[in-house]
Structure formats: C-alpha cells, structure tokens
Nucleic acid binder design. Structure first.
Length: 427
RNA sequence: GGAGGGAUGGCAGAGCGGACGAAUGCGAGGCUCUUGAAAAGCCUUGGGGUGCAAGCCCCCGGGGGUUCGAAUCCCCCUCCCUCCGCCA
C-alpha cells in the first residue's frame, strides 16, 4: 500500500501522481478525510485510557496502604471511565477499519519516469530485436494451434474435455519442450537466484500482500471449502516468504526464482485472444523475485529485465521491450517493462514477461522490513519478473521454427534438454 | 481426523493478576585499557501509532472475554512439536 504519511504531507502531489494511472481524486480525498477522523478518535480514546491506567495504579497503591474505601471509590470512577473508553474505542476502530479498506484499494504511485497514458495503446516500445521483422511474404504463417495439432504435440480439445476451454494439453515432444524450457531457465538463473518451489495454493493474506486482493478477486481461482487461492503467479507466494520479518541489511538483495503453474480466470477478457495459447487459464512460468534496499532497486530491476531478455535471445525469438504507461501498470507496480515475443504464424506480439518494480508497496502490505546501519528499520523494495511464461513462448517457438516440411526445429539452447534432438516431426 | 505440549525482544530463555515493554545469557553498537588486536570492565540496544515537543497510547502468535488492572485467567482461531490414525 501507499505511504499514508506521504499522503498527509504532500496530498496534492500523491493525488496527481495517482491520477496519472486513473485513480479518481474523490477516492484519495475520502481516504484523507477518514484518516484525519481516525487519528482524532484514537487520540481521544488514548487520553481516556491514560486516565484509566493512572487510576489502576492508584488502586494498587491504596490497597497496599490498606485504604479499602479509597480503593473502592477509585474502582467506581474507573468503571465509569471504562464505559466512555469503550464507546470511543468502538468508533476509533471502525474509522481505522475504514481507512484500512480504502488504503487497500489504492494502487501504487507510479514512478515519475513512467510514460503518460491510459491504456496499452500508450505503452512505449523502447527497443526491438531484430529491429525489423521478416518480410510478410517470406514469413512462416501457420499459427501454433495448427502446427501443434499437425505434429500431435498440442491437443486443445483434450484439454477442454477435462477442464474446459483455455486449459491446454501438451503431448509428447510438446510436453517435453515445456519441461525443457523450465530446466533451461532454472539453470540459467542458478547461482544468482535461489531456486524455490513454493506452494501454489495460498491464503487470503498472502494474496493481499501482493495487491491481488481485495480488488481483483474475480481474476483468481478460489477454493471456497478451504479458503485457499490458486496463485496467478509465483510472485504471490514469494512475496510472503519473509512476511512480518526484519531482514539484515547484509542479506539484501535476496534474489529468488521459482517455477510454478499459474492460474488465471481471465474473467474480464471473455472472447478476447482465445485462440490456441494466446490466453489460457493455466500455464507454467519461471518467476524471478527480489527483496532489496531502495537504492538497489534500479539495478535489480535492470538485472531481471536483462535475464528475461537473454532467455528470449538464446531461444532465437524476435522480441520487443515496452515501457508501460501509468494507466497500464499493475496495481502494485511503480514501473513496469513488458517483453513481447513475435509469433509469425499468427502475426502477433505475445506478452511473455512483465518486469515490475513495486517500490515499498508490497513490503508495506506484507510488512517486510530491513534494519539499516543506523539501527532503524525501513521497508524493503520488491521486484518481480517472469523469465519466462512458457505457454506463449512455446507458441512463438513453434511458429518461428516451423520448416517447409512441417517439422519444427528445436532451438539450439533447448537441445541438451531434449535428448540432443534437433527437431520435432509428426509421429 | 484424534490426543497432548508449545508460540515472549535480532537469537536463546525467565516471568503465570498490580511499579513488566518485560529478568538473564548470547549477539550488536559505543567507551576504557592497548602500538594494534584479543581478553577484561563500563554503558547502550525491540517494534509501532500520535504529537512542534514533553508526553500519551498500542504490541508478549492472531481475535474475543473476565477485571479497577492481563504476558499472566477464560473462549475461539492459526502455526510449530510429539504420539496415534489415514495417505501420494
């Protein structure tokens, strides 16, 4: 969540920054009002409490000196004050709850460098490799769903039969390639990022910490009976790894990496991009996550982005990097770079990574702090980025590497993970 | 799923109704001594809210309750440990 003290000290600056990403001024204003009332009420409550405590001490003193009648008198007075305290405490906690609810709904303040804009149309392409795409007439033009069906490595009908549409089923070398991609990526990150295999069902507070709840509950799968949520990304469990802890300054940055399935209801996007693997409810992904000191954040952000890019390059795919505009930022993010690979068969750019700097937004929600060298504590910064999301990478590979004869060449980087073979042909 | 035991500061661990935000040890920081270091000695050292400040308030896993007063008593929940049952 955002820093409420900053909101108090420079409300117009914060409100203006939030407006860049579409937060209404009213929303900010009602938070400011509720916060002021909340503080006023708790100050009044505390003053009454202080009197009650003082009287208690006097009761103890009266008892010790054997003055029972004074003790009784004081106790009666205290009972009276307690009634007042209870009333004030009720109001104060209701108002504090209101502040909390409003605060949980407000997204992160975008970084000043973040470009202006209200939707994905305003995102800025900052680089593309290669700079120009192959001529449309020479380009491979069979979409991955056809390539996959022809080679028997992707069976969308079978997936739909067991789970419904948008739950893909990979077969044979198609499944093996997915596994190869995960191994390839984990090996690439090993040594720098600590590999974690977190749970993929998490509690509500874990989903709250990253900002996925309460506002975006419709986007996630919820197991009502056990009140657990299927993670939409490994970012969710990883962000809670040190929840409530104070880390040593020397431990930072903590760099983590996890391969997990990811589950998304895609509630708001029914009917959009539903062909093949363009948008699916379940996919595998390798995620990079970092906890660091604020001054390390920029460097770590660059490193995660560089790692995602280098995986794409090694796989030999065309890609571009987007600087997301303020209006297209995820709730927790202050600055995000998206990576899109080009899929020639369906002639589309597919988002395969989103590398975000969440400043202290998630750290506040998860209460993850570190001890500075002056002994004081401060919130860490968190960063995350996919490296990479495989379903769409799989689609781009299959489309990019399809040959005249219908077989798909296996990218050189993956061959060692696929028994040394160099192509997938119809079986 | 059943039966017990536990959760206290950075860590270990005492406290079981009144001066306890909390003994003690370790760790960390400062100082003395020393050419330097070690050793020894002395001192300091939890988190948070609010306030210009003095101060006041909250926090002993979380939430309720009893009481003039709760780390301490009662209830519920979560997590950890031991045993039994079940099971990939």
């Amino acid at each position: 969540m955002i820093d409420i003290r900053r909101l108090r000290s420079e409300p117009q600056i914060v409100a203006a920054a939030l407006a860049r990403r579409g937060v209404a001024n009213d929303e900010v204003e009602s938070l400011i009002v509720a916060d002021r009332r909340s503080r006023e009420l708790s100050a009044r409550r505390d003053a009454v409490r202080a009197q009650v405590k003082e009287i208690s001490r006097q009761v103890a003193a009266a008892r010790r000196s054997g003055d029972e009648s004074l003790a009784n008198e004081l106790m009666a007075r205290s009972r009276e004050l307690n009634l007042e305290e209870q009333a004030l405490a009720g109001e104060a906690s209701a108002e504090a709850g209101a502040v909390e609810q409003l605060l949980l709904m407000i997204p992160n303040v975008p970084a000043p460098e973040c470009p202006d804009g209200s939707s994905e149309l305003d995102n800025v392409v900052i680089r593309q490799h290669p700079a120009t795409l192959q001529d449309p007439l020479e380009r491979q033009s069979v979409p991955h769903w056809e390539v996959g069906a022809q080679l028997g490595i992707l069976d969308l009908e079978a997936g739909a039969k067991m789970s419904g549409s948008m739950f893909p089923l990979f077969k044979g070398d198609g499944a093996a390639m997915l596994r190869a991609l995960t191994s390839f990526a984990l090996d690439h990150h090993r040594g720098s990022f600590l590999e974690i295999r977190p749970p993929t069902l998490v509690r509500t507070d874990t989903m709250m910490s990253t900002g996925h709840l309460p506002k975006f509950a419709d986007d996630a799968y919820h197991l009502e009976r056990d009140d657990l949520w299927a993670i939409p990304t490994a970012e969710v469990p990883l962000a809670s790894m040190y929840r409530g802890e104070i880390l040593g300054e020397g431990e930072l940055p903590k760099l983590l990496c996890a391969a997990t399935p990811c589950f998304r209801r895609e509630a708001g996007s029914a009917g959009r991009d539903t062909r093949g693997l363009l948008r699916v409810h379940e996919f595998d992904k390798v995620e990079l996550f970092a906890f660091c000191r604020p001054e390390q954040a920029s460097e770590v952000h660059g490193e995660i982005l560089a790692r995602a890019e280098s995986l794409i390059s090694e796989l030999g795919l065309a890609y571009r990097v987007l600087d997301l505009c303020a209006g297209d930022l995820g709730a927790a993010s202050a600055r995000t770079f998206d990576l899109e690979v080009y899929a020639p068969g369906c002639d589309r750019w597919l988002e395969v990574s989103s590398v975000s700097w969440c400043s202290d937004y998630q750290a506040r929600r998860a209460n993850v702090r570190y001890r500075q060298d002056d002994g004081r504590t401060a919130f860490v910064h968190t960063l995350n980025g996919s490296a990479l999301a495989w379903a769409r990478v799989w689609a781009a590979i299959v489309e990019t590497y399809r040959q005249e004869d219908g077989a798909v060449a296996i990218p050189a980087a993956l061959r060692a993970y696929m028994g040394g073979r160099d192509q997938i042909s119809a079986s």
